[in-house]
Amino acid sequence: MLSPRPPAAHILAYAQTLDGGGVEKTLLRLAGSWAQLGRRVTLIVGDVAGPLARDLPDGVEVRQVGTKTMLGMSAIAAQTEAVAPDVLFCPGNHYTALAAWTRLRLGFRCPPIVAKISNALVRRDQNAAVAATYREWLRWHPRFVDRLVAMSPAMAEEACRMMGVPHAMVSVIPNPPPRPAPGTASPLVPNGRFLVGVGRLAPQKRWDRLIDAFADIDARDVSLMILGEGAERATIESQVAAYGLGDRVRLPGHVDDPTPTIARATALALVSDFEGVPGVLRESLAVGTPVVATDSSVAVREIVTSAAVGSVVAPGDAAGLVAALEHWLAPGRSRPNPIPQPGEDAATAYLDLFDETVLEHRFKRGFRPTA
């Protein structure tokens, strides 16, 4: 006897590029798991060229738009109508404008939309005018999104406050932890002690802040390695050269599996202006490597729960960042015990949410109030 068709039997998700961002990496892990669990998964990608192309999961149908621009990605509305999925998954804040466009374009023909909150909703990098506009934009989200996913309880509270949505509209589902990538080579690590940073070479990550601090630390036998690729490479390289740190700072580019490098590092540093729930902090603590992080999200202190596992500093506190790095670089400093990551059941939790959302959507469309 055949099993009944689940309400969300066909899931459509989308990504602009496969250039190596955390949102896209997580999406690929989830999509592969959903396919393994028997769901039909269609992935719309602006351009499939990029380091993450090798991570495209088996069993997932991939449709390429052919452009990396957000304007070109507006084709997601037509693709959604053509594919006719049961549910549309928006994988992060960066992509909610496309979800809004799809709802506007398709109207009642639009499937229910589940959107994940991938970045902080309170942005310290914005000036007053931009911040006011952004707050207004967040308040529009309940008009086109059916359900929201936050990666931690604190982010769920922030979503309710900033978007004006009820708690029942927000589900808390941590990202699935990354799996070791078999057959992938780790970059050669520096001899001796070293700090590591992991993330795109993008303005948000503020690697300039880390290099400024690294230039000021007293421990001259320590190296710095930043794993990631992006548009800021030339700027970062110029900064490194200006400090005369070319022999102590390495930028090997994107790495498929940074975990072995993180495990050997003396400490991991994440110095962003804003983040969502930084998975790299959890990955670092899972292998017993202490962390130094800016207070870039309400979720940071949910992860760095005590001074025994890491240090949290204000984004603009340059002296505090140097002091935190030197604290963990002190000879004989104890490393924290490994802390298991949450999210092992993330894929099934999403499927339960998708099924529930589809059933709610069908009920609302079929419901007619009595006179």
Rank of each mutant, 00 (worst) to 15 (best):
V62F: 05
D47C: 07
G32K: 06
M73P: 00
D19I: 02
V65F: 07
Q79Y: 15
V48N: 09
T26K: 09
L30Q: 10
L30H: 11
L12Y: 00
L18Q: 03
A49D: 15
P7C: 09
A82H: 12
I44T: 09
P57C: 13
F89Y: 14
A53S: 14
K68P: 04
Y14L: 02
W34F: 14
T69P: 00
I44G: 04
V60C: 00
Y14M: 06
V62C: 09
L88S: 05
I44Q: 03
L30S: 08
L30P: 03
Q64I: 12
D55N: 10
G32P: 02
R40C: 03
H10G: 04
S74Y: 10
G21R: 12
G21P: 03
L18P: 02
E61G: 07
L71T: 06
V45P: 01
T69S: 15
A49P: 06
L30M: 14
T17R: 12
G50H: 03
R29T: 13
K25L: 04
A9K: 05
G20K: 11
I76A: 11
R29M: 11
T67C: 06
R54T: 14
A49W: 09
D55H: 15
A75V: 13
V45C: 10
Q36K: 13
D58L: 14
S74D: 08
P6E: 04
V87L: 06
S74F: 12
L27A: 08
E81Y: 15
S74A: 13
V41M: 05
A9H: 13
G20A: 10
V23P: 01
F89M: 08
G50Y: 11
T26Q: 04
L28H: 02
D86G: 09
T17Y: 07
P7N: 09
L43C: 08
V45G: 02
L52C: 12
G20H: 12
P57D: 06
G46P: 00
L18C: 03
R5F: 00
S33F: 01
A13E: 01
P85Q: 07
I11A: 01
R54V: 13
G50V: 05
D19T: 07
K25T: 11
A53I: 05
R40T: 14
S74Q: 13
V87H: 02
